[in-house]
Write a protein that binds this DNA or RNA. Sequence first.
DNA 1: TAGATTTATTAACAATTGTTATCGTGGCCC
DNA 2: GGGCCACGATAACAATTGTTAATAAATCTA
Lengths: 189, 189
Amino acid sequence: MFDQLKKSRPKLQEHWGKYANYYHRLEVPAKTVLLNEGDISKKAYYIEKGCIRVWFNNKGKDVTFQFFFEQESVSSLESFKKSIPSQVTLETIEPSVLYWIHKKDHDNMMKELNAIPEVREQLSDILLDRQINYMTHFMSFIKDTPKERYVNLLKEKPHIIKRIPQHYIASYLGITSVSLSRIRNAVSK
Amino acid sequence: MFDQLKKSRPKLQEHWGKYANYYHRLEVPAKTVLLNEGDISKKAYYIEKGCIRVWFNNKGKDVTFQFFFEQESVSSLESFKKSIPSQVTLETIEPSVLYWIHKKDHDNMMKELNAIPEVREQLSDILLDRQINYMTHFMSFIKDTPKERYVNLLKEKPHIIKRIPQHYIASYLGITSVSLSRIRNAVSK
DNA sequence: TAGATTTATTAACAATTGTTATCGTGGCCC
DNA sequence: GGGCCACGATAACAATTGTTAATAAATCTA
């Protein structure tokens, strides 16, 4: 299950591996809702195969917030950690193979893992990296135009453009699918 | 120095207080640059009085990313923690009274603080809250129009609008000062 | 205090994006 | 296979924002 992790962070995998029995395999079709906006999250997911879209409802339209792929962990962070209603919905885009862990087990696991200094450091490194990615993505929203954001996405994360339906990408870029279609047309010339 | 913290998180203050001698008082005028974009951060700041603007250069224009006020800690997170060039500049807006801590001391302090389970939990709570704030702010960028963002800011953080020059607020909202001026005109009617 | 600089408002025009609607294609389910 | 639905492209028009420039007001500084 954590084979990929083994390569990048062997020390973490060594300890994390002990908790493999906390995780439950789950196979679901495309467009399966894993958590509804407004509900309180009790599960975190690890993606073995497939992808998940995080989105929320804005005045009747859905707005995509993030995409997650293989070997990534996904949850509605604030809801899962603080047991408050989720601001977002989690939904698969493709048929997916997931592993989920219950909050109770996760809390227990984290408590034990955090007690080990070297593991604690690696875990907080992961959190930090996530926050930096977040910030970088956010900065591009402030400084770039929609066209620039599309061109950047095409350059830096082509797998997203290849794999995700276009109207999801449009809302991820903060524009309508009509506008994205125009931009694609302009870029290709 | 940490009087305010004492009220909100007494347990944390009790332990953090021991490191007060790591912090150095610094009094600076308005528009003092504390860290330049591209430099590697070696200091983190705590604001006793005044406010700090975090911004970056985008094609010759400065774009404001965040504001920080009294009783908040500020650093270029990714630069300070990973010793990489900063993506942002830190600059005071008003004459300010700050306390700074050297990275070396900070690392040492955090190592010791994180070894105490209850303190570690509070520290990670603070990080989590910051990340949630971040996300909420980001979501408003995706879903709201500039006018809505201004109205929200007016409602939820009026202290920012009262205290910060308008052209900084404009770039914080992702628009030009001309556009903000028009929006203010329209809203007031 | 006087001059210089910074900050905010407004106008006119250009450029971009949103809205609504239509059309065509391709995939999927019964 | 037929019909339905999801998806993407395009057009026409409305609305919003950016750009540039001129001006006024406020603030800083010598």
